[in-house]
């Protein structure tokens, strides 16, 4: 375990005024938008896609039983597709976060903690 590395230095928390200013800043507004405009619609989308799959399993047995190749049917393919989309969304979010969220968050954090 990486217990050798010292714990991150404890910073004095910036003042309420500093937080309120930071929250109102254009920079933070961009960070919030970059997070919400990605995470919120995507959450709605993957939950809808999951529910569609659950509903098809419950009410569209005939369609789900259609064979595609050998004994592999639509139900199995759609189930595996849920795995695939979950992996893809996780990868996509990691990329988005590294490119659009981390640099902005770092900038605000170091400015706020640097001043404290």
């Amino acid at each position: 375990m990486a217990t050798e590395t010292p714990p991150p230095a404890k910073h004095q928390l910036p003042s309420p005024v500093e937080f309120t200013e930071a929250q109102a800043s254009a920079e933070f507004g961009e960070l919030r938008r970059a997070h919400r405009s990605f995470a919120f619609p995507l959450t709605i989308a993957f939950i809808a896609w999951y529910l569609l799959y659950v509903l098809l399993s419950c009410y569209a047995g005939g369609f789900m039983g259609t064979e595609i190749a050998g004994n592999i049917n639509v139900a199995l393919v759609l189930g595996l597709a849920q795995f695939l989309t979950t992996f893809l969304i996780a990868w996509w979010y990691a990329r988005h976060a590294a490119a659009k969220l981390d640099p902005r968050a770092e900038a605000i954090k170091s400015r706020m903690e640097g001043g404290a």
Partner: peptide
């Protein structure tokens, strides 16, 4: 509490002052 929300929102998205 607007001040506390400012603190929570900024901290939660940026990691400022994280333990």
């Amino acid at each position: 509490d607007a001040e506390k929300y400012a603190e929570l929102e900024v901290r939660s998205l940026t990691g400022t002052g994280a333990h």
